[in-house]
Design a protein around this nucleic acid. Sequence first.
DNA 1: AAAACATACCATACAGTATGGTATTTTCAA
DNA 2: TTGAAAATACCATACTGTATGGTATGTTTT
Lengths: 179, 179
Amino acid sequence: MSDAKQSWLAFALKTLIRSGPGALTIDRLCSRKKVTKGSFYHHFKNRQAFIDALMTYWYEQATARLIAIADTQPCPKTRLERLDEAIAATDIEAEMHIRAWALKDTSIQHHLCTIDTQRQHYLKTCYLELGLDSTQAEQLAATSYASFLGLQQLYPRLSVQECLTLSSRQAKTQLEALL
Amino acid sequence: MSDAKQSWLAFALKTLIRSGPGALTIDRLCSRKKVTKGSFYHHFKNRQAFIDALMTYWYEQATARLIAIADTQPCPKTRLERLDEAIAATDIEAEMHIRAWALKDTSIQHHLCTIDTQRQHYLKTCYLELGLDSTQAEQLAATSYASFLGLQQLYPRLSVQECLTLSSRQAKTQLEALL
DNA sequence: AAAACATACCATACAGTATGGTATTTTCAA
DNA sequence: TTGAAAATACCATACTGTATGGTATGTTTT
C-alpha cells in the first residue's frame, strides 16, 4: 500500500472517530484534507472500495491489534485484564459510529459481523480456559461483550473507564457464579 | 391531534422500524404514503418539528406504555417479569435505529437521554424495593439495561427472545450475588 | 511513462417555498 | 332554523438551491 493511500485511510479513520460516518463523504473528506477528488479517485476505484479498505484498516487497529496485545499473556485471567487495559488506552469512539453505520449499509454489516464473531470467539476461549463449558463460555462472552457495548451507548454517557469497570465487574460476578 | 397528523406519525414510525431513519426523508415518506409535500408541510412546520413529534410518539409507545403495563403489578419481581413480557410482545426494531440516529442528530440525542434516564430510573426503583442500596440499584439498572441493548446489536443477530432471556438471567445472577 | 492530483462538469436526491385547488366546518344574518 | 359566505383543513404541482457520487480530461511531479 502506498504512503498516500495509507494517509487517506488514517485520515478517514480520524474523521470517522471525530465526526461519524456522515462526515465520510468524498467532498467533505477532500476539503478537510485539502485535496480534490482527483486524489480520491486515483487511490480508490469508487466509494465502496474506499469503505472496504477503511473497514479493513479499522479491523487491524481495533480488533487484531488488541487481541495480539492480550495474547502476550499466558494466563487467561491476565489476558482479560490486559485486554481491558489495551481497550482503555485506545480511542474507541469509532465503535458506536460503525455499529450505527452498519444499520444502513450491509457492507459495513458484513465487516462488523466477522469482527464481532472474532471478538466473541476470543473471549470464549478465555472463559473456556477458566473452566466453563462451551455453552457457558459462549453466553458469557456474548453478555460481557454486549454489556460493554451497551454501557457505551447509555445516556447520560459514561466514560470508557466506567464502562470497562462496570462490565468487567459484572463479568467476574457472573463467572464466579458459574464456577 | 388531528386524525391525519396521527396517521402521519404512525406511518413514519412504521417506516422507521422497517427502513431506519434514512427512509424518513420528506420525499420518500410522501411517495410511500402516496401523498405530496403539501400534506407534510400542512401538518408540520418543518422537518425538525416532524421529528420531535415522532420522538414523542415513540416515547409514548415504547417507554410510557411499557412502564404502565409493568406497573400494574404490586411485587417488584413480578413487575420486572411483566416488563419482559411486554417488551417481547412489542416491535422494538426502532430502538437501534433511534440510537444510531442519535449519534448524528443532537435533537434525537436529547429525546433519547430523557428516555434512557426514565427507563433506568424505573429499573432502579424495582431493584431498590428488592433490597439493594441506591448505588447497587443504579448500577444494576445500568448494566442490565445495557446488556439488553448490547445483545440486540451483536452480530450474528439474536432474536428479541434470546436477548431477553440472556440479559434477564444475567441480571438475576447479579442480583442474587448482591443480596 | 507513470504516479499523483486539479478542474470542470453531470445527474440525482434532498429540504424548503410559492401558489393554487378542493372539501369540510364555522359564522352570521334573514 | 337555514342557507350563503367566509374561514379553515387538507392536499397537489412546480419550482429553487444545495450537496452528493461519479466522470472526463486535463496538469504537475517524480
